[in-house]
Design a protein around this nucleic acid. Structure first.
Length: 426
RNA sequence: GUGAGAGUAGCUCAACUGGCAGAGCGCUGGACUGUGGCUCCAGUGGUUGGGGGUUCGAGUCCCCUCUCUCACCCCA
């Protein structure tokens, strides 16, 4: 076991059949919901020029500083496995001359070299949306409402929407220096001693100091971000809240909510779940009005979010037991096996999941395998059946058997599937 | 990057202060040679993650190393 020669790289996951089926179902549901809001899906390459991420995310962010998988090709050019989806989607939006307003969505895997832990991986899948070219509180509100509704439809529990406005880049800059002045003053007169983390935060992301568990409480009288927002910024934020109220989306205003990527401005939001005691972020997003221009396009406002597929599955789903083949064909001797091979070929042409044992086994052993595979029905083909040109179909749940002509297998399958769909709908 | 915990059969886990490596589940076969699940019986199972050290003797103690998990930072 631990002597295995090869193991998966740290922080990566194998998606075994049971989870694969669950994922497929969830993804179908997600796509349907997102399309209902007018979005179209897009895919971008797994890796991009490293510069794209440094320019967009910001060179002093954690992602760029220490979490990117960056490598060089044979010509010495630097590429990076995408750590997030927004910059690549915007790049693709520009490169393919997609006209705004554009609503683009994606389901793509991302890569970050973090230390893995619960709900956190080095390769993980994100579902994301980007509404490009629209600047109105209504779209911010709609984007938030959509994220909330989708998570709810997916069965996520105890969701809380956290929102904040971090103002324009200029407003935030002014606030940042005011906050730093305040901190420096306090440190110099000896009334404040920041923890080591916060000393680092001062140069990297001072806004986060307010949220520090150690230092945050000591900073009650620090300047507030809101005091630095213009009346337009405040009005924009108020209107978003009005729409959310109208739609009945419950939110909590979180003045200290900031986002870790440089390109965000004005609206910032997160959706967390309190399911496991502590709040854990499932979805994060915000407005980024300067990114398109930063990447060389015309000034174009945009807003979007992303959520982690694994977090949804980890927190809210049990990996199901999946059903095996619908028909498991069992034989009694070499002669009937020859017949069964032909039958199986027909069943497969009807696209009904089916299987058999390849090595010779007793009927008993075959039934055992059918049971273990969680097959729905066993089709027993023996000399008695062949003689009357019929097959014996045994329901593996009830044990009831019927003797029917081969063609009936299609009808039995369809009826069973119809019954199951009906049950699922309830 | 920082801190904590854990590695024993395919899986879940036992093994008193160092003293013969075990159980359940699984798997294979049988009781039942054309019928699965339940029961009973038998069989199958191991470099105790790896390396070194202490000892008459190490799964157990010490050192190194690898892997996994959780938390912090940060994030989805």
């Amino acid at each position: 076991m631990n002597t295995l020669k090869y193991k998966r790289p740290k922080g990566t996951r194998d998606i075994i059949p049971e989870e694969f089926e669950l994922r497929e179902r969830l993804i179908e549901k997600i796509k349907k919901s997102i399309r209902a809001y007018g979005y179209k899906f897009i895919n971008t390459p797994t890796f991009e020029h490293t510069e794209l991420f440094i320019r967009s995310i910001g060179d002093s962010t954690d992602i760029v500083e220490k979490e990117m998988y960056t490598f060089q090709d044979r010509k010495g050019r630097s590429y990076t496995l995408r750590p997030e989806g927004t910059a690549p989607v915007i790049r693709a939006f520009l490169e393919n001359s997609i006209m705004p307003p554009a609503k683009l969505a994606y389901i793509m895997n991302m890569f970050r070299a973090e230390r893995p832990q619960k709900g956190r991986f080095r390769e993980f899948w994100q579902v994301g949306v980007e509404a490009i070219g629209i600047k109105d509180p209504l779209i911010d509100a709609e984007v938030i409402e959509m994220g909330y509704s989708i998570l709810k439809e997916l069965g996520a529990e105890k969701l809380v929407v956290l929102i904040n406005s971090i103002g324009s880049i200029e407003e935030r800059q002014a606030y940042k220096s005011a906050l730093l002045d305040y901190l420096n003053e306090k440190e110099q007169d000896g009334s404040l001693e920041l923890c080591n983390d916060c000393k680092r935060r001062k140069s990297r992301n001072p806004l986060r100091i307010l949220d520090c568990k150690i230092d945050g409480p000591k900073l009650k009288d620090a300047p507030k971000l809101k005091e630095f927002l213009s009346s337009e910024s405040l009005k924009y934020f108020e209107e978003i809240k009005t729409y959310l109220d109208k739609w009945g989306v419950k939110y909590r205003e979180e003045p200290r909510l900031v986002r870790g990527l440089d390109y965000y401005n004005h609206t910032a939001f997160e959706i967390v779940s309190e399911k496991i005691g502590v709040e854990d972020t499932i979805l994060g997003g915000g407005r980024y009005d300067s990114l398109v221009e930063d990447l060389g396009g015309p000034a174009t406002p945009a807003v979007g979010w992303a959520f982690g597929l694994e977090r949804i599955i980890n927190y809210f789903y049990q990996i199901p037991r999946i059903s095996g083949p619908f028909y498991f064909v069992a034989t009694v001797n070499e002669f009937s096996k020859g017949y069964a091979i032909g039958l199986l070929k027909k069943i497969r042409e009807w696209k009904i999941p089916s299987d058999m044992t390849y090595e010779p086994k007793s009927l008993k052993a075959q039934m055992k395998i059918a049971d273990r595979l969680n097959a729905v029905k066993a089709v027993i083909v023996g000399e008695d059946e062949i003689k009357v040109q019929k097959v014996r179909v045994r329901d593996l749940e009830t044990g009831k058997e019927v003797l029917v002509p081969e063609e009936e297998l299609v009808r039995i399958y369809e009826e069973e599937m119809a019954r199951r769909n009906k049950q699922e709908a309830i």
